[in-house]
Structures are given as C-alpha cells and as structure tokens.
Amino acid sequence: MAARIEHLVTSGTFSLDGGTWDVDNNVWIVGDDSAAIVIDAAHDADAIAEAIGDRRLVAVVCTHAHNDHIDAAPALAARTGAPILLHPDDLPLWKQTHPNRLPDGELTDGQRLSVAGTDLTVLHTPGHAPGAVCLHAPQLGTVFTGDTLFQGGPGATGRSFSHFPTIIDSIRDRLLTLPPETEARTGHGDSTTIGAEAPHLKEWMDRGH
C-alpha cells in the first residue's frame, strides 16, 4: 500500500524568551496501514497515538526544537518505542523543554528516512532555529517545511536562536529550488506550494531590512 499523509491539528502554548503564546500546530503522519512517521509531536501525545493506532511508529521527527513542536515527543516515544530524531544544532533549544531527556538520534542534511516505501530527505534549513530541517518527499509531491516556510513568507526570526538572513538563504537555496508544484505542508496554518511562494522572495528580503 502506498504511503499517505494524514494531518492533525493540536493546540497548546509556545514559550521562548520569557513570553508565552497560544498556538495551533500541524502534526503530520506519513505512512500506510502498517507503519508511520510522525513529523512534530506537538502538545497532545494521546491524540497523536490515537491517530497512529496499532501501526508501528518508525520515528518521531522534529523539524526544530521550539517547545510547541516537541512538547509531546517524549510521551509519544515512551508509548510507542519510536526514536526521537532532531538535528544536533537544536539541542540547546531542546534542553530548555526537556533537560533530562535527550533525543535518540540525529538528523543530518541529506539523510533519508523511509516509511511505507517512501523516502523523506532531510534538508537542513537553519534560520528560524539553528537545527531547523524540512523533509522532502518527492514521491508524495510534498515538502514538510516546519516553521521555515509558511503560506505568505518565512518563519519568524525575531527571537533568540534565529537569524533572518539565514532563513532567507535556506528558503532560496533549499526550498525554492524544488519543483514549483511541490506542496509545502507547514508547521502552522494552511499549506501552500513552492510555486506560489517563490515569486515573493524579493519582497521578503526587502521586508527583512
């Protein structure tokens, strides 16, 4: 059976630099009837586990380590036995949320994760966070962009561990080079396509200066 993409929205809070905000997060599940990968275990381990059902969870993949994307990861891993994977550059952020529980494995640029006969290629896209990654699944015509690229522009870079010129470089060099019809499934809000966002790169750059 071919891999499919399932989508959950979970709600909770995002906290950084002394502030806390209410947020809705996209949780993406890629797999078939027997195995799955979770991208960003946000807020509600019970809801995510229910969506997985009796499938084998191959991995809990973190697009970055802001607390709203990883807060449910240890509980989900404990329930399923799945490893938590994170780019090592985001360990300082991870430790703010989970000081006593490290990820189980590292994500590296160009690494391939496989589930249900489908490969997801890790693209290191720093800027929103140092270890931010996107996951490109060409067989599904999709890239999971976390908080690197949204409908309407780049992820936020106004807080610690973030850098605007870096996120622009990541988007230009790693994402806008993908086929324009590639669907960008984001960490928050609606999906978009690479082709819809590419024409606006100069506007974003001008806005950032």
Rank of each mutant, 00 (worst) to 15 (best):
K95D: 09
A42H: 03
A129Q: 05
L86H: 13
L149V: 12
V30E: 13
I39G: 04
D147M: 04
P179E: 11
F144R: 03
A41D: 03
G31R: 09
K202F: 01
A116V: 11
G208V: 03
A198W: 02
Q111Y: 08
I84Q: 03
G208T: 00
G110A: 05
I70N: 05
D109I: 12
I37W: 01
G141S: 13
L120R: 06
V58Y: 12
T192L: 12
F150K: 06
A156T: 09
P138F: 11
T182G: 06
M1R: 03
A72P: 14
G31W: 10
E106K: 10
C62T: 05
T177N: 15
P83D: 10
K95Y: 07
S191I: 02
A137P: 06
G195P: 01
S170R: 14
V30H: 02
E106F: 11
D46S: 14
S34F: 07
D44Q: 00
N100K: 14
T97L: 10
H124N: 11
L16C: 03
G195S: 00
D32C: 04
I194W: 06
A116W: 15
H64P: 07
V61R: 08
T177H: 10
D33W: 01
L76I: 15
P99C: 05
G19I: 09
A73M: 11
K202V: 06
L8A: 06
D68V: 12
A3W: 13
F14E: 00
G152M: 14
L93G: 14
I70H: 02
A36N: 06
G153L: 09
V143G: 03
G189K: 00
